[in-house]
Design a binder for these strands. Sequence first.
DNA 1: AAAAATATGTTGACATACGATATATATCGT
DNA 2: ACGATATATATCGTATGTCAACATATTTTT
Lengths: 105, 105
Amino acid sequence: MKKNEPLSESYYYILLCLSKGPNHGYGIMSMARQLSDGEVKIGSGTMYGATSNLIKKGWIEEIFSQGPGEERRRLYRLTAEGREALLGEIERLRKMLAVAGEVMG
Amino acid sequence: MKKNEPLSESYYYILLCLSKGPNHGYGIMSMARQLSDGEVKIGSGTMYGATSNLIKKGWIEEIFSQGPGEERRRLYRLTAEGREALLGEIERLRKMLAVAGEVMG
DNA sequence: AAAAATATGTTGACATACGATATATATCGT
DNA sequence: ACGATATATATCGTATGTCAACATATTTTT
């Protein structure tokens, strides 16, 4: 088991959105908002900082082969490591809730 | 419903520890470590920054009436607002897991 | 008597998450 | 044709959380 460094809410939703399939920055922002019923609004500053960060980590990667008319968009795909990290984070959240269950009623 | 600003892992565990009853800084550090099976280690720098921060927010408060021999320890208690914040955070975590359930299998 | 555990605190450095701001194109309704 | 809105990407500054390291003092254990 590796130590699961906590993910921020934004990062969590970004990875989660990409787990469905490749997507681009703006698409992820919209999807995260939709998935969370409008509660999670990822700003562009967060988004584009996060992508470069997640690429550095090897959790997502850019896809370059795109059809015509798609040049404006930069597509990202979740890597295997990224999926692992996401699963680890889900596990961490489960644990946090489990502990809350123990401590509180 | 208020907007639940995400809590950091450390803050979450601090509030959770205090939900059992008043405790002091060092006690919270030990308890968090124990509750998380040694995974969450809150350093003193984090701890004492967090307490002053949480007091400012009104989520915890210091208790001064202590028995003899307890002068060395500074006891903190969860306030009603703090409990609400903790419950809100738990709700937020639940939602994050629920969304993951929807999106992934 | 020495060592380890208990207990609180400060400081400095670092990473980074986020909001605000900027830019540019595309689409849609009127 | 025009304005508004949606699409899409990107930078910059700020605030903050966190850790490591240092500092101090008491209590308990060996």
